[in-house]
Amino acid sequence: MSLNVDSAAVAFTFKGGMLPMTVMELSSADPERIRQQLAGKLSQSPAFFQHTPVVLSVEKLDEPHLALERICAVCRDHKLLPVAVRGGTEPVRQSAWALGLGWFPPVEEGRARVLESVTSSPVHEVTREETEVSEAEAPAIATRLYRGTVRSGQQVSASEGDLVVIGAVNAGAEVLAAGSIHVYGALRGRALAGIHGNTHAGIYCRELEAELLSVAGNYKRSEDIDPQLSGRPAEVHFTKEQLEIKPLG
């Protein structure tokens, strides 16, 4: 901002951003089947359906023509806001643009990661993926890999994506990530996932001895952790407004 000398003359600036997006991966093109399934989901987890922006992924569909307008209407009825379509044929792309939606090219094999699904469902899976809106050609998901022991007094952070530690995080050390934290070793220090507020982030470790666990600012200290979980493989998630720690596997 300080560089912007003539700030009155500038109406806007373009900025690259990595935003968490829900991808709704369609495995049926039938708007009625989607409607039924969505109604069921809405009653299960109403908190999720609050004008949530979604990207409709039609990559798994074989149909050249889609009733895209009707599918979008069904989504809006259930408080999901389609903002873009991903994949599909040329007619699909044209109709997306006609509806005022964006279009993304299909994702290469293996890039999409199913991080969390509301429930496992044959019709659609809610996947979460970082969607990039910037000049950069390839939207790389910034996973930081750290090999070795994170020692007392050291801090290792992944400010954009996930953090993977192949080694232990010792007492007095701190690991932070905008996304999830994976520790292939003992977690004895502090682990803070979702530091920018991503409540879907998780913490996974081979041996839970943590001093502090936090997901999107919701934390538990070691004395709040069930001693039965101590020293065992565990995963940590933010569910039902609190941190849930479970044995892994």
């Binding site: 022991t149 020692r151 007392s152 007094g153 050291q154 010792n170 007492a171 007095g172």
Partner: peptide, 13 residues
């Protein structure tokens, strides 16, 4: 042990 761990971190940086 914890202090040694700290020193090992400094040795590496």
């Amino acid at each position: 042990v914890r202090d040694s761990d700290r020193i090992l971190g400094l040795l590496a940086s």
